[in-house]
Design a protein around this nucleic acid. Structure first.
Lengths: 180, 180, 180, 180
DNA sequence: AATGAATGAGGTTTCATTCAT
DNA sequence: AATGAATGAAACCTCATTCAT
């Protein structure tokens, strides 16, 4: 049993059953290990949770963002959205996001990560808008405003339950709204 | 001590310290009452939490929405946003929102309320957009799309830490982007 | 079950089995009570131990000292010694003394009580010597020195295992050594 | 790491933090070694504690007692006292004494050592008194009683916090009290 | 309407110990 | 000679709950 395996399982509990259900007992049981064994790897539960934040934080930081800007506007928006969707739905990251979501109002560590994720998405959205405008695919509008509109709408969609079709319709509408 | 006082204090704990810190002991202590006394008012903790959801749900339902559509577009958007802001920041509702936020991925009751709040905001946003378009204050665009853009951006803003000035700048930009 | 009963039993464990054997589990078992019940009466184990020191301290303070100085020297010394013996052997106080003995080098609370007990005995010893000298029953010697000799010898005896006969022989020898 | 180093450190824990704080974990930590390593040197904790008693016992046995009886009474008493003081204050022995002190009422091994130490001091005290009397430096009094008085007073002093000056004053008073 | 007293279950953590390496 | 990894038992403590008063 490695630290990472423990963290992965801890994340799964938080995602599936809620932060308050993450107990050392439950964690040990799911890992087929005795409670005391966990204390060989982590000094305390608090310590483990801390590692959980760091773990997720690092994974997030490793999510590179590359978009092929030679495609048309709708395609670019779609790929951007898909990139973010990949973050929110990846089994690797979903548990971290669930932790953040549940704790962001309570725990500063969670809030900080939540914030930096939000800012990252916003920055990428802004960059895409600027590019689309500079390449004349979008009309010459306030790229900062478009960035916020696209980022926020995407964020809300990613946290809700939308069908892929509906997402596509939204992106297509968004693209045509601002296209040249 | 009334049921409402208990619920209010329970909400405060959830908002200030987190859902997992809502314990009968903590609640009793904050109310200067003995633990056993709480069982006179609520059959169980589960019961109390249930009442908490109902309590918040009812308060939400009582938030009427009236906008004076004779004003100009920016003013209408601003008042709409302020209405939502009132919900998110009111001391009465903030603890309920915190509960919803923390539990919406775990507890169906929370998810349902979260969803209906989201849909309510969305519906109001749509209605405003339709009205602005029908009154020729906004160009004849897809009201459903504009509704989503405004609602989502507002939602994200309301959950983050934006200054009033920044909010105003956003609304003004939004208005001028789609104005006739 | 009262606080005093708990403290009494806790003292018994310390006396009979040692300070390190005073556990909440053992205590509950001896009291025919569940562990959790003890936490209704004391916030924590530390808290309970604190109460134990106070409990013993108060009992000590209530030990009045009265000697009839009309008797002869040997009788007075003997009664004084018996008074101290009463402290060390009384079932009520013995457990407290055992706690003090075991912890006086480690725990300041214990050291303070130990010290005040030692000083009390010394002060009574001094007073007896002064009286015996002033009444011409003892020769005109350094009462302060005699006080220390009698107090120290008594203290050592009370902590060891001496027979009553041996104690009496000691006191009689001591009396005749300094008598007029 | 040798057995002796382990015992030394174990003694230090007992002296500084108390018998109940002597744990394998704490011991390993202070020795910058992993817990499991200690089991290479000692079969069990009980075993180690046993060794601790033996260790101390042997050290005690090696404390030779020699006094130059050609000196005057005060000097002889002083040297005797200093010899005992050396035992109680030596860094080598202090931790063993602390162990004995804490456990003498609980653990027979501790009680036996405590007793033999007490008897050794008493025997030495008696011998000194006999010698002083036989050499006419002390009056012809009950050497057995004087032995007890000096031994007990010294013992109490050595366990308390007396200044060197005060000790000297006591010895000088004691000497003049019984001198020819 | 409130509480004193108790409890079973389960929480986090520490303990001494083992064993393969 | 030492350690990484694990564990059963037991430590302290908190939880929601009950019930007679």
């Amino acid at each position: 049993m490695t630290k990472d395996e423990i963290l992965e399982e801890a994340g799964a509990i938080i995602r599936d059953e809620g932060y308050d259900m993450l107990t050392i007992s439950a964690l040990a049981q799911r890992l087929n290990v005795k409670k005391a064994s966990l204390y060989y790897h982590f000094e305390s539960k608090e310590n483990l949770i801390d590692a959980l934040y760091v773990h997720f934080s690092q994974k997030l930081a490793h999510m590179g963002f590359r978009v092929d800007f030679s495609k048309d506007a709708e395609e670019i928006l779609f790929r951007t959205y898909e990139h973010w969707r990949g973050i929110f739905l990846s089994p690797e990251l979903s548990s971290g996001l669930s932790l953040i979501e549940q704790r962001k109002e309570i725990d500063e560590r969670a809030y900080d990560i939540y914030n930096s994720l939000r800012l990252m998405i916003r920055a990428q959205s802004d960059a895409v808008m600027e590019n689309l405008i500079s390449r004349n695919r979008f009309r010459n509008l306030d790229s900062f405003l478009l960035g916020e509109l696209f980022a926020s709408s995407s964020l809300v969609r990613l946290q809700g339950e939308y069908t892929k079709e509906d997402d596509e319709k939204f992106i297509s509408s968004f693209a045509s709204l601002f296209s040249t």
